[in-house]
Nucleic acid binder design. Structure first.
Lengths: 131, 131
DNA sequence: CATCACGGTATCCTTTTTGATACTACTGGC
DNA sequence: GCCAGTAGTATCAAAAAGGATACCGTGATG
């Protein structure tokens, strides 16, 4: 193996866990990943409308990071008006068990959020507030 | 259901995932959790020595957040010199499948780290650098 | 008497992350 | 001619996170 890379043996236990978490820990990243997991392919403004409080700047930023980390694919169609589609890569789809486990845990311990602790308050949403 | 709490129906899909991730996304948090998972109970300086580049300030900070979020238990023994033991709570132990899945994913996609993308470089460690 | 280990604090500073607001080029429909 | 929708940028500001360094009281050890 290349010496410039690190192998799993170079670092202490928990290091790869930390590394993996760091890829999905930006604000809205999990929400984006979850939508892409559920709906397959979404355009920029489709995501934006689903996460209605996000600013375009933040959405762009998170999408670019997810793309740089190889978790999502960005496809630009050369047309006007512009059409850019986002979808999970194979690597991104491999996060599925993690996201499911996180969701299960999150739903099970939902009483934590909003009351005490360090977690931010849940946000309201375009799809959540009308019905 | 109480209006002051949120139910899983108040928020969009992915919200609970995001909430769960936010609890484990501080720097070193996963490393700490992993050590506690592996070794059961550890004292402050035991953790500190294992993660040798962490400052006491950061260790304290992360431990207090994990405690506030109900993931770890902090037990102070009234003696001198002080003895403080940290261990996972039941809730913390329920993170096991998540941490395992993250480790599996991280190890499988380890080529990502250090080269490109947004992930930080892996760190060297007390236990990793001698052999 | 000085030093070490214990489990932290206090203070200051830098970096990173997030947010608010305004703006772009282009085209199709009214 | 004007407005809406497309996918973003640019700029500035605020807030949060992280890092460096020094320090605390206590008690045992040398």
């Amino acid at each position: 193996m290349a010496k410039t890379h690190y192998s799993r043996f170079d670092c202490q236990p928990g290091c790869s866990v930390e590394a993996a978490v760091s890829l999905i820990s930006g604000k809205w990243k999990c929400v984006v990943l979850w939508y892409l997991l559920e709906e397959g392919t979404l355009r920029f403004n489709e995501l934006r409308r689903r996460i209605n409080t996000i600013t375009p700047r933040m959405l762009t930023h998170q999408l670019r990071e997810l793309e740089a980390d190889g978790l999502i694919h960005r496809e630009v169609h050369a047309q006007v008006p512009p059409k850019v589609e986002y979808s999970l890569t194979a690597r991104g789809r491999e996060l599925t068990p993690i996201l499911m486990a996180l969701k299960a845990w999150g739903d099970a311990h939902i009483d934590l959020f909003g009351s005490k602790g360090t977690a931010g308050k849940p946000f309201t949403t375009a799809s959540g507030e009308q019905k």
